[in-house]
């Protein structure tokens, strides 16, 4: 397709009806006088007919069932991913709080005998229960932890507790 220098690259767009409004009529006027464009247009038109007559490649019979199964798996995984993420975050949060409470307990043991008991309980009785999305810190009800936390909240850092 040696082609027409002026319009050669526009033949495809003309065939597809994609030439702009200004160029379309100009090409129409040019076409009867240009053998190269005429041949290119016919060749591309024939090619398009052949392309459109190519057999469609159909999905296999099991395609649909496979897709819905895959989607169901993907949907099932989402909460698992979310749960794992959440679980790790919660453990990190609990660990952070526990470290803070541990530090508090250490400070409290310096001069308060009740705090010694707190430390022991922290070592023995803390238990983190993870059950699905539900997390709990199980503590002895008589535990002095709340007292320690109150002290911590009230502490302005200006002096030793």
């Amino acid at each position: 397709m040696s082609g027409c220098r002026r319009w050669g690259a526009e033949v495809a767009a003309y065939l597809d009806g994609e030439l702009d409004e200004a160029a379309g009529p100009s090409f129409d006027a040019h076409l009867p006088d240009c053998e190269a464009c005429g041949e290119a247009l016919e060749a591309q038109r024939a090619l398009d007919v052949d392309l459109r007559s190519l057999p469609r490649i159909e999905p296999s019979p099991q395609f649909e069932a496979q897709f819905w199964a895959r989607l169901a798996r993907a949907e099932g995984e989402e909460p698992v991913r979310g749960w794992l993420h959440s679980w790790r975050m919660r453990v990190a949060e609990v660990a952070f709080v526990a470290a803070g409470v541990g530090a508090l307990a250490w400070m409290v043991t310096q001069d308060d005998p009740r705090a010694t008991q707190t430390t022991a309980l922290l070592e023995k009785d803390w238990e983190i229960v993870a059950e699905g999305e539900r997390f709990e810190l199980l503590l002895d009800e008589d535990h002095e932890l709340l007292w320690s936390l109150e002290v911590l909240e009230a502490w302005d850092g200006s002096e030793e507790i």
């Binding site: 397709m1 033949v11 495809a12 591309q44 090619l47």
Partner: peptide, 16 residues
């Protein structure tokens, strides 16, 4: 796109 389609048709015709 215009260029891609133009070259595709030319290339296809050439190969054929």
């Amino acid at each position: 796109v215009k260029s891609l389609i133009h070259r595709a048709r030319e290339g296809l015709s050439q190969k054929l």
